[in-house]
């Protein structure tokens, strides 16, 4: 058990070594949500909300949720690159715990997302966003990390099943329509009715709305059940996704020897 923990930490340390060896891609990933915030807020915010401060107040929680979603492609890219470079096989040929590889990935990716969260929060604060209370902010961070944790297992499973790193490009593209079709950037009430309904039930909206609720940021006046129970909905969604994809990912990893 202690050996498995050491092995997981060593494997996570490998990713931290990548950050040190290649700081530029690391920083770009870290600052990308901030860039999105500036881009959407600075360029479109005035048109969407009338004035910038109001829009940032709305958009920061949304972009925090999107920052977690960006982690999905990070997980998938790490897994598929290791498979391509035969690192996955080398790790499987070592006398290490079968749990160490996913656990190491988990540590590294959760650390990366925590850093992205902190950076994006700081950027939001600089833009004038103010969470209602610090406890609210911590609760919001926990909801977001639960969402990221669910995406981690989804990413592990999809990454193990993907045949090449190129598959990740598809995910990188799909992230955008998924973000747009949610309450991240605009109020779904302004969308055509059926699209608005889809957007309200998008798990990304639940995460964003949960952060809005917990930090006292403006929540659009939703009349739907989904809009009014965002925190619970987000936590339940994350729980269900984890419960489904964690065993599937573990099984996919075990079945690599088929």
């Amino acid at each position: 058990m202690t050996r498995a923990i050491t092995q997981s930490i060593v494997l996570a340390g490998r990713t931290f070594g990548h950050w040190r060896a290649q700081p530029v891609p690391f920083l770009v990933n870290l600052l990308f949500p901030t860039l999105v915030l500036l881009m959407m807020g600075g360029l479109l915010g005035g048109a969407i909300a009338g004035d910038l401060p109001t829009y940032f107040w709305y958009a920061v929680p949304g972009v925090l949720a999107v920052a977690m979603l960006f982690g999905l492609e990070g997980t998938m890219l790490a897994i598929t690159t290791d498979a391509k470079n035969a690192i996955t096989d080398r790790l499987r040929s070592l006398p290490i715990s079968g749990a160490a590889v996913p656990a190491g990935r988990c540590l590294a990716d959760m650390a990366a997302s925590l850093l992205a969260l902190a950076t994006t929060c700081t950027a939001g604060l600089l833009m004038g966003w103010r969470p209602g209370s610090w406890t609210g902010l911590v609760e919001a961070a926990l909801v977001l990390l639960a969402f990221r944790f669910a995406l981690l297992w989804l990413g592990l499973f999809a990454g193990l099943r993907a045949t090449s790193p190129e598959v990740v490009v598809a995910v990188q593209i799909l992230v955008w329509p998924i973000s747009m079709l949610s309450s991240v950037f605009v109020d779904p009430a302004t969308m055509p009715r059926w699209l608005g309904a889809v957007a309200e039930w998008n798990p990304l909206s639940a995460a964003a709305n949960a952060v809005r609720e917990l930090t006292g940021s403006p929540t659009f006046t939703s009349t739907t059940w989904a809009g009014q129970h965002a925190v619970m909905l987000s936590l339940v969604t994350s729980g269900v996704v984890t419960a489904v994809f964690a065993p599937l990912a573990v099984r996919a990893y075990r079945n690599l020897d088929a």
Binding site: V10, G13, R14, H18, N85, L94
Partner: peptide, 20 residues
């Protein structure tokens, strides 16, 4: 070759040594 392309040769050896 099944190596971490980003890390140095020495770092690869230390990494797998630690795992062992």
């Amino acid at each position: 070759a099944a190596l971490d392309e980003v890390l140095s040769g020495r770092a690869n050896l230390v990494l797998f040594g630690r795992l062992l």
